[in-house]
Design a protein around this nucleic acid. Sequence first.
DNA 1: AACTCGGGGGG
DNA 2: CCCCCAGAGTT
Length: 359
Amino acid sequence: MKRNKLFNELNRLSFLEKNKTVTSFLHIGNRLLEWYRNNARDLPFRQTKDPYKIWICEIVFQQTRINQGLNHYNNFIKRFPDVKTLAEAEENEVLLHWKGLGYYSRAINIHKAARQIMNDYQGIFPVEYEEILKLKGVGKYTAAAISSICFGGKIPAVDGNFYRVLSRLFADDFDISNAKAFAYFSELATLVMPDNVGDFNQAMMDLGSEICKPKNPLCGECPVHEDCLAFSLQKISAYPVKTKKVKAEDLSLTYYFVHRNGEFLIRQRKDDFIWKKLFEFPSFLPETMKTFITGSKIISHKLTHKNLSIEIFNVEVTSEKIWNDFITENQYLITNFEASHEKSFPKPLENYIQNSLKD
DNA sequence: AACTCGGGGGG
DNA sequence: CCCCCAGAGTT
């Protein structure tokens, strides 16, 4: 049997092996469905099965809380209502709509995938899980979500919510930072999963975010707390188990806010490292221009794996020749405060530009 | 299999 | 200060 094979492979005594008399947990999934029918969050992508909209919302909300991404999702759909519109747009405009949302490769990949759908699938969103999986930026979770919600696919959309809910339900100490966690909890999910997988997947998301929260879960309001082993053991806070910790490293950046008559210089980043293809200020200034520096400001900014210290020098260029030479030699772009709204900047630079207007 | 990619919010 | 979030791509 596939399940036992997986557990043996992992050399681990599962909850199921300790409780061989229990053969099915389907009633849990059914109770979640009933709860979902009465308690589903009212979200703009809940009234549709349009695979385009479900796809966009799944990408937007990867590693992103609903409240943080909701405006971005609505604006994105408003500007790019369908695959064709998105595919025909410029990459920079897609990035602009991602401004401030983070993980910018999502915007680059979403644009590539739109062109994939136009070129490889004649503009028709692929129906099969294996085909959906081929789209740039679409992994196993997102493919399962789209497949189940839009096309009746029977695949659990295992994400952080699944890890948390299932590990608590079964008081399962499988390490979610283990590379096999996805396979393991996918298998566990199938034991609970009813026939309506699309609603089940969304029910698990809502339960995870509204009830079975990482901290201070509302077990008293949980529709399945009577089936929850961690709850009955009063060990909720012990799950999920996660051993791997990533430490943030320190990183210093230097920028020069080079401006003259209300215009300032920018350039576009590469698609590697941080802030892929976002715009930034020059990070180098020749000796001859350093006499134009009038001051500097240090900004602290935290990323998930980096503590940034960004020093931004204010450079007010009073010589038109030096200004023009600097631009042509380095191929910088010229913008101003108004036009800069049309480009996507890293958050700390976006804030700097906003503040520079007040001065 | 491990590492990397943002920004925001909560305790 | 640390943790987490509707994960995926790269090495």
